[in-house]
Design a binder for these strands. Structure first.
Lengths: 192, 192, 192, 192
DNA sequence: TATGAATGAGTGTTCATTCAT
DNA sequence: CATGAATGAACACTCATTCAT
């Protein structure tokens, strides 16, 4: 599905605005002024409102964009023929690596997640990007590889432990491998 | 010799302001206007600034206050003679119950935790309120009841899983016991 | 190549704001609210801050603008071939006439001159507008037409006597010529 | 005339408040907060309003107090049997010395003089403190020692030149004697 | 489409003054 | 009389959004 039909706008500029929003929000939180975001993107204040009807829309789209990016990243190189643990480990490692490599994205995401300005609708849409990973959960659950529990709960636990892990990696990057291992172990033995 | 005061600062009002800050911030996030917080506390706009020199100070004090409250709550009724698992379970249950009972407090806390406006200094001070619980971690670790790992990491994992658990409890309060159990199991088997 | 502007900053509006600042400050002193100044200029409150980054900047620019205007006024019609006394008298008369014609400007200037908010930097820049008049001082001094003394001191004395003169003119406008004469005599015999 | 009848208040405190007002206003201008003035005087915020009904009253009384102090200072050691020039020189020297010794007082006075908050009434009362000096003017004028001109104008010129002189003394205190002499000469030859 | 000047409601904070203690 | 907490109007400044160019 190509967007360029519906919006004959410069996809480049749109991306520049989203990227600037990430960096500006990482620094200033959700209160980051749209004027600064625009400036950071190299466009005029008003231009931002051509690409996004208002700030909340920008916030919600950014949330979605990041969700999609994370899901994509987590599945890259994924092999569905490996055993359950290996598959989980793959997904886990990819996420930790993404987070370690993109601190600003993580900071922005953290603000978005707890904000009321990101609508339920966006959260649902964001979850859809994780459908493939969801299937991994479902399969593992039905195969008995994981203890009986709601898949969403599982997902939440995994994400939560990953965040803690990333906090530690952020503070001591040189111990990344250790924390990555530690975090996965806590998750896997905890839920398996 | 203390100079007799015309009217001493009222601890009651201070609490009213903090309480109103919680509720207002639960609804509006950190952007909650000080004027609204004051109104909600039944005091004049200016009065807020007698009790807190500025909004950031209020935010930091609120963070601390909540941290202390949570620590106290978690330790209430705690028995140091029970076995490790029982002790952990106690602490876990108390936290889940606190969170389930105080959704506004949790919402406010969530915003504070991810905000740059809460200073490192306050976070350190907040951690001090958890020193007793920290000892529980240390003892369990040295006794071999828990797998070898940094105590702070353990604490982070526990808190993270608890938050997920509370999110589920918030959505389906009638399944509270089930989620409480599920969350603890994930934590305990994950780290033990 | 200049990027075509949507709407260029309007010199007209800038002047309107400065003009309104003069009148508002003449009435209310330096405490004149920016909101009132803006209103008096026929622009929105926020517009003032597009033309001046903050109130202090407005104050400093206003000081400069007035200094420049006064210098220009004093030199208009000036003939460098006349004798010293005539040249001085010309400059003197022009200033007294300017002050008598623009009481609000004088009132505003009086506040600005004694305020710490007008920076040394602005005062130096303001003095630069008087360089031509300064030369008149220097020439007269070196020619021996004026008693030996620092040129800046001379300038200060002249300005001070002019202010007194203007105060009297303000109270009894009908005696303007008399005071103008009296003041100049005090100055000229005092320094020549 | 003893004040302590009308106000059975501590004259000491009243003076402390006025003194603090001088210093605080020298630093912060007329916008100096009453709370800070009170603190500087070692009294409570509310106490200030026992001694002065409101801030404007404080300002006006301060103006008067300073006027009186200056007049008194100028006449101290004054010999009415000396010749005119000697008498004028005495008064001149005393004022320059007062100003050089009390920069904060001068700064405060400068703000008060140009402020609308000091009422005409206070200015008139302030002038009364100069009645004795006024007589000196009158006598000198009628004796023919000074050129024919309104006494008030003369006084204004003297004050104005003195202010300029003090500005120069403030910047180069080591040249005080030189400027004092220069200033007096400008004044005396200008008006005599 | 792109620009950035213009808008004005909204924000944190100050401060003269009052008044309960 | 003395205190300082309490008040709320006022202020400088910000910012999402609009719209003339």
């Amino acid at each position: 599905m190509v967007k360029s039909m519906a919006r004959p706008l410069s996809e480049e500029k749109r991306q520049a605005i989203l990227e600037s929003a990430i960096n500006t929000m990482a620094e200033l939180g959700l209160g980051a002024p749209t004027a600064r975001i625009a400036k950071g993107a190299g466009v005029a204040e008003g231009t931002l409102f051509i690409y996004f009807p208002n700030k909340d829309a920008l916030l919600n789209e950014l949330y979605l964009e990041l969700k999609r990016e994370i899901a994509e990243e987590m599945l890259a190189g994924y092999r569905s023929d490996a055993d359950h643990r290996t598959q989980w480990r793959h997904v886990w490692d990819r996420y930790i690596e993404w987070g370690a490599k993109h601190p600003a994205r993580r900071k922005a995401m953290r603000q978005l997640v707890v904000s009321d300005r990101v609508l339920e609708q966006s959260r649902v849409a964001g979850a859809r990007a994780f459908e493939d990973i969801q299937q991994l959960f479902d399969k593992s659950l039905s195969s008995g590889a994981l203890r009986e529990q709601p898949a969403a709960f599982l997902a939440g636990v995994m994400e939560a432990i990953a965040e803690v892990t990333l906090d530690f990696v952020a503070r001591q990057p040189e111990r990344m491998e250790e924390f990555k291992q530690l975090g996965f172990q806590a998750f896997w033995t905890g839920v398996a």
